[in-house]
Design a protein around this nucleic acid. Structure first.
Lengths: 341, 341
DNA sequence: CTGAAAGCGCTTACAG
DNA sequence: CTGAAAGCGCTTACAG
């Protein structure tokens, strides 16, 4: 058996109540008693039993984080932002991912009961507001990240994918590209649909004579690679490709490299997210920078600082980062004037 | 207040003991009673309070994972392997990272008490065996990953960094390279020192007339970039660079690209780990493949399956993956016979 | 097959 | 400032 508060109390000749107070820094403990307790505790290598403590105190000092996935740069960065704030405030994180499976998401959500004081949830499935309501414990404070939940009454923090896609599409058009293909993310995904919507609206606005050209992807490298190959096999190739995220843009770039297609001389390329890798590939990738770590940090602060007021709703605007992969088709960065409109 | 086992018991007209048995799938519950209990529980959206359950059952169904860091492809892959096995066995993970800070490592280790049934620990500091012993709860089952702990009596699973570095150094020598520089990892790091040792021994063996050439790095991209610049500024440049991990190799590649130095025509390059990115950069990176996810999966299986027998010690051998970045200096992959020996 | 009761290791009013 | 005691929400021998 490991050492409990009783062992410390016995050894220090005080009650368990006093040990508890001394260890938790309460003021109503005599200084010499406090010292004795602390010294006995450290001598015995006492460490409070977490479950017991949280059962009686009704607090866990832990924040739950439920994400669709954990792998890849995006989630890695997101966790970094969340982790840093948690650390500053002395909180632990209980992380759970559900691999896109709604049943597992429900399990994960329910498994958080009695383990966390609040929840950060990313659930980018369109139309799952009811699902969230059903699986969320009634009183659990929560902040939804990049989650489509109209009028859910929950606090939300999102990346403005629509605005970002508009900006990128305009940039490509202004750089002189016309046949701009778009590789979209998974169906039913909130981020994916927002970015696609931005691409379509911007195309209609700045290149009204040109049909939007959309290829299906699912946000991973392999799907970008397949889309790249499909584009090369098309009767008429695009002169620019805008992928809904950087991972797909990299897969696409790989396909172009293999086929000997030069970027941007033959086809320009752009992504979305600005993962660290984007600047290391050759040519470096033009993309929309999303401050992913900042998204995580702001979400957890929102959770901790929103006492009982109305649920705040906020969004982060991505920033255009122009690199080599979208240098103008007539030379390096020489933008052709837009003929359209 | 949220709904507890008492509410379910009252509503189903049975005792809490029976509810507990029904919910936990014990056999000694009448079928109709079980059905009634389950239906009431789901109707009430009952979900057991984790802390209470683990306090009384003395099991948490949770495995603790304590890592130096959480960011980057290596840890992402490692977590994927661990997570998959945990999922298969219905276990949760409590993940904690200590950012290389030994005090935080001690905190993380002690914070696991009463929260986990077993522990996976990666502590790549040389000579920290005492530290681990002091901060590990006495009876806690643990598997150490890539941790230097001679005769610690704990189960360990490691990557054979020494053997891997020997293999890579021989490969470069056989491909005809002579002035092979090595970018090493952080001082006092077990993996780093094993890889460096392999490089030195292999150099002495296959290129006895040539001085080893070691640059300091710390396993991240930026340090590889700095090392690459330092190498380019040297009076006589190397004809190959072997970085102790892929991230530093990528940083180095970036420095070479910026300076217009061609890889492998001017200088060959090799890394270690085979992160997913290694095949996406241009030119694709020669490296030692470490099955990182497999390392995690095997470690957790070791933890779960090692009942009370002697602590097993195992290691994984990396595999040489030759890609464009180390094509022979006289042409594509034409290896020059080794003159040495 | 079922229930009453003890107990897991803490925290926190309540008295003093 | 300190202690005795109740209680957090469960599980599990122990009886029956």
């Amino acid at each position: 058996m490991s050492v409990t508060i009783k062992d410390v109390a016995r050894q220090a000749n005080v009650s368990v109540a006093t040990v508890s107070r001394a260890l938790n820094g309460h003021q109503n403990v005599a200084e010499d008693v406090r010292k004795r307790v602390l010294s006995v505790a450290s001598e015995l290598r006492y460490s409070p039993h977490h479950a017991a403590r949280s059962l009686s105190s009704r607090r866990t000092n832990t924040i739950g984080v439920v994400l669709p996935d954990l792998y890849g740069e995006f989630f890695s960065e997101l966790m970094r932002g969340i982790d840093q704030v948690a650390r500053e405030r002395g909180l632990h994180l209980l992380v759970s991912s559900y691999h896109g499976n709604p049943r597992e998401q429900g399990d994960a959500l329910r498994a958080m009961r009695g383990r966390v004081d609040g929840l950060l949830l990313m659930s980018p499935f369109v139309g799952n507001a009811d699902f969230i309501a059903e699986n969320l414990a009634q009183q659990m404070p929560v902040v939804l990240m990049n989650t489509a939940t109209p009028a859910s009454g929950h606090a939300t923090l999102s990346v403005d994918g629509y605005g970002g896609a508009v900006t990128m599409t305009r940039h490509l058009a202004e750089a002189g590209y016309r046949r701009i293909a778009f590789i979209t993310g998974p169906e039913g995904n909130f981020d994916a649909s927002e970015r696609l919507r931005g691409y379509r609206d911007a195309m209609a606005e700045v290149l009204p004579g040109i049909e939007p050209w959309v290829l299906q992807g699912d946000f991973d490298e392999a799907s970008g690679h397949r889309a790249g190959q499909a584009l090369l096999a098309a009767p008429e190739r695009p002169d620019a490709v805008f992928a809904a995220n950087d991972m797909m843009a990299l897969g696409c770039l790989f396909a172009f490299n293999q086929a000997g297609v030069r970027v941007p001389a033959d086809i320009a390329l752009a992504g979305f997210d600005d993962i660290p890798l984007a600047r290391y590939v050759h040519p470096a990738l033009t993309t929309m920078r999303v401050e992913i770590a900042e998204l995580g940090a702001r979400a957890i602060r929102m959770l901790l600082d929103t006492a009982n007021g109305p649920a705040p709703q906020a969004s982060l605007s991505p920033v255009l980062v122009v690199r080599e992969s979208s240098a103008g088709p007539r030379g390096r960065g020489e933008a052709m004037p837009t003929r359209s409109g």
